[in-house]
């Protein structure tokens, strides 16, 4: 009689990588929906396109690497990466941006480093930065929020714009009011032109809410998704809290010192990709620090970097750069911040 042997523990909690990924994707959907509501169907199309490209690219690479394709695709990490790229890109950006970005993210940033769990950088953010430095104009031209410009691009219009560029002029830069810079971009430009923050915030893009029309809702939706993730213990609070806390403190200090040249803390928290970064991007465990204190520090580092880049840097939003820089620091943080193991109190 031979018996099966295996190592203890013999019971496992019913969680799987796939389930984790699914929950994160699920939690990001409200944000996507709100984004689509304010900026048209573009984001949705970008997401779908990114997912298709991501799955294709990953399957191809896995085949080349001689790995099992089905099981690996099943973990849905590629879908999550694609989703994040999709929502981060301007809704009406041409199709090749998302294709290039996704392929770069999946093939180079993720698989060439060894696949899931091995990559040093957050694939979505690496792709975003690649696109940002390669196509600066296209990447900083965002669709006008609902109610500010002409009617939102419909699904078909959005498809047309994205895939053929036809009609692009109609939705092009600011004057037509269909597509325009983001509030962060506007504020930055205005500040550099000598306007005070208060004056800048009078502009229609901020919609009187002093955070930017529509953006506050997008951020709130992502916040809601993040809270769901926290509640379901899919992510832990350390990174998000560190990020938001640091961003808040920094902008509060800046705002208190010089209200004219700095945006308010609330503006910083609820504009741009702040909430998306705090709950969906920075919390990518693969590229984050591992210990609890390390993660707090990791999040805070991102928060500080976001604020610094937004305030002093050349780019309107610094999430992608901040995350990549923090990714670089993660091994260092892990090296220096280790939890005190049981029985090591007082010594060592």
């Amino acid at each position: 009689m031979a018996f099966r042997i295996s190592s203890s523990p013999h019971v496992r909690k019913d969680t799987a990588t796939q389930a984790v990924m699914q929950k994160v994707i699920l939690a990001a959907l409200p944000g996507l929906a709100v984004q689509c509501y304010f900026f048209g169907w573009g984001s949705f199309i970008q997401v779908l396109l990114a997912i298709a490209v991501a799955l294709g690219a990953e399957a191809a690479v896995l085949k080349l690497r001689g790995r099992t394709i089905k099981e690996t695709l099943n973990d849905q990490s590629a879908i999550l990466t694609a989703l994040l790229i999709g929502v981060a890109l301007p809704p009406l950006a041409p199709w090749y941006l998302v294709v290039i970005g996704t392929i770069f993210a999946i093939v180079i940033v993720k698989q060439l480093y060894g696949g899931l769990g091995q990559n040093l950088f957050n694939p979505a953010m690496a792709a975003y930065v690649l696109l940002l430095v390669s196509f600066p104009v296209l990447m900083t031209t965002w669709a006008a929020p609902l109610g500010l410009g002409a009617d939102n691009a419909g699904f078909v219009d959005a498809l047309k714009v994205i895939f053929s560029g036809v009609g692009a002029p109609a939705f092009a830069l600011g004057i037509d009011g269909v597509s325009m810079a983001t509030p962060l971009d506007t504020l930055k430009t205005d500040l550099s032109m000598g306007l005070t923050a208060t004056e800048s915030l009078q502009k229609p893009i901020f919609g009187g809410s002093s955070t930017g029309e529509g953006w506050v809702w997008v951020n709130l939706a992502y916040l809601a998704g993040g809270i769901y993730l926290l509640a379901s213990k899919t992510i832990r609070w350390h990174i998000s809290t560190g990020l938001l806390g640091a961003l808040f403190v920094c902008s509060l200090v800046g705002f208190a010192l010089s209200p004219d040249t700095h945006a308010s803390p609330l503006f910083n928290l609820f504009s741009g990709a702040t909430m998306l970064a705090a709950f969906f991007i920075a919390t990518d465990p693969v590229t984050a620090a591992t210990s609890r204190r390390g993660r707090l520090l990791f999040g805070a580092l991102i928060g500080v970097l976001i604020y610094v880049i937004r305030t002093f840097g050349g780019y309107p939003d610094g999430v992608a750069f901040a995350v990549l820089l923090a990714n670089l620091c993660a091994p260092l943080i892990d090296y220096y911040i280790k939890p005190r193991a049981y029985g090591h109190r007082g010594h060592s």
Binding site: A16, L116, S291, R292, A341, Y342
Partner: peptide
């Protein structure tokens, strides 16, 4: 499956 460094193990570890 590959480790995704989710850190759940560190949270669960009673020896920190």
């Amino acid at each position: 499956k590959p480790c995704i460094r989710c850190g759940e193990c560190a949270v669960a570890c009673p020896a920190s």
